[in-house]
């Protein structure tokens, strides 16, 4: 495991913000750390970077204890927390050169990073004049400068347009192909589900789910989607025949799936009682809905 925490907790005064979180981030994964705003994602990330001291619990990164190996661990981490931290009075390249000086990285690497995030043409422009997307890309270049084994990104696509989001997603997938691990937080599942291999869902400081993307899909109960001439009549009919109804909408209703045979039986029942069936099929809830259900259930 690249990151392993046990019973990680943090309180601001008497208010518990992170409650006994046990993270497990495997090597070479893109770990999507999900939760609504205020769930405790940034606080957890700050503890992983030793910016905040946990109230309880332990953090091991690269199989080393963070407290006692702070510098050797941080040498192998690149991070971007919330808004990119950029000196506005310096140019994009000067921002990178300043960090390169601190990390003792060559100027050639700075040029490579500018190229990677497609900022070579704007390298001499003051960073204060960059667009939000350019600032975010510069922030990622800064995080990648020391060629880290682990990249920690906190809401890297915040405020970006769809093109910017796609660019950053592609960048992360490229990085993982090089054998690195990416830990990325977001409040939107849709943003990470296309690239994440693993997911952790946090709400009110508690871990609600942790596992692979397919495990997340597996806990997602399949349902029968039924589109009829009258959802209300269909629902009443099914209820009279002791069939549970999951959800009723004007144009469709959902019934928990038990077997293929059940789909045929429901179809027959509806047709025999004069209700026209426009469509009937088995489906999974989309992940976004599942994510909302998980975070609401707390």
């Amino acid at each position: 495991m690249v990151i392993r925490t046990e019973g990680l907790s943090f309180s601001f005064g008497s208010q518990a913000v992170v409650k006994s979180i046990s993270l497990e981030v495997p090597e070479g994964s893109i770990y999507g750390f999900l939760g609504p705003n205020g769930a405790g994602k940034t606080t957890t990330i700050k503890m992983l970077l030793n910016l905040l001291n946990p109230s309880a619990g332990s953090i091991r990164i690269f199989d080393m204890d963070l407290q006692s190996n702070r510098i050797s661990i941080l040498k192998q981490i690149g991070s971007l927390i919330e808004q990119p931290a950029i000196y506005h009075h310096l140019t994009g390249k000067e921002n990178l050169l300043n960090r390169a000086m601190l990390l003792q990285v060559s100027e050639q690497r700075v040029d490579e990073m500018l190229n990677l995030v497609q900022l070579t043409a704007a390298a001499g422009k003051k960073a204060g004049n960059y667009s939000l997307g350019m600032k975010q890309r510069l922030g990622i270049a800064l995080a990648l400068l020391n060629d880290p084994k682990l990249l920690i990104l906190d809401e890297p696509t915040n405020g970006l347009d769809p093109n910017g989001i796609i660019e950053i997603r592609e960048l992360m997938m490229r990085i993982v192909k090089e054998g690195k691990t990416v830990f990325v937080s977001s409040h939107l599942l849709s943003e990470v589900e296309k690239m994440a291999t693993h997911v952790g869902i946090i709400n009110h400081g508690k871990m609600m789910f942790q596992g692979t993307i397919s495990e997340l899909q597996n806990i997602n109960q399949p349902q029968i989607y039924i589109e009829t001439s009258s959802s209300v009549d269909a629902a009443n009919l099914l209820k009279r025949h002791h069939i549970a109804i999951g959800e009723i909408e004007e144009d469709h209703l959902l019934v928990p799936f038990t077997s293929k045979q059940q789909i045929g039986d429901i179809n027959n029942l509806l047709v025999q009682n004069g209700i026209t069936v426009f469509g009937i099929n088995k489906q999974h809830k989309d992940l976004e809905k599942l994510f909302l259900d998980i975070t609401k259930s707390n």
Binding site: A85, Y87, L142
Partner: peptide, 9 residues
């Protein structure tokens, strides 16, 4: 940039 400064190695 405080958070960046204090997360440097």
């Amino acid at each position: 940039t405080w958070k960046t400064l204090f997360s440097l190695p």
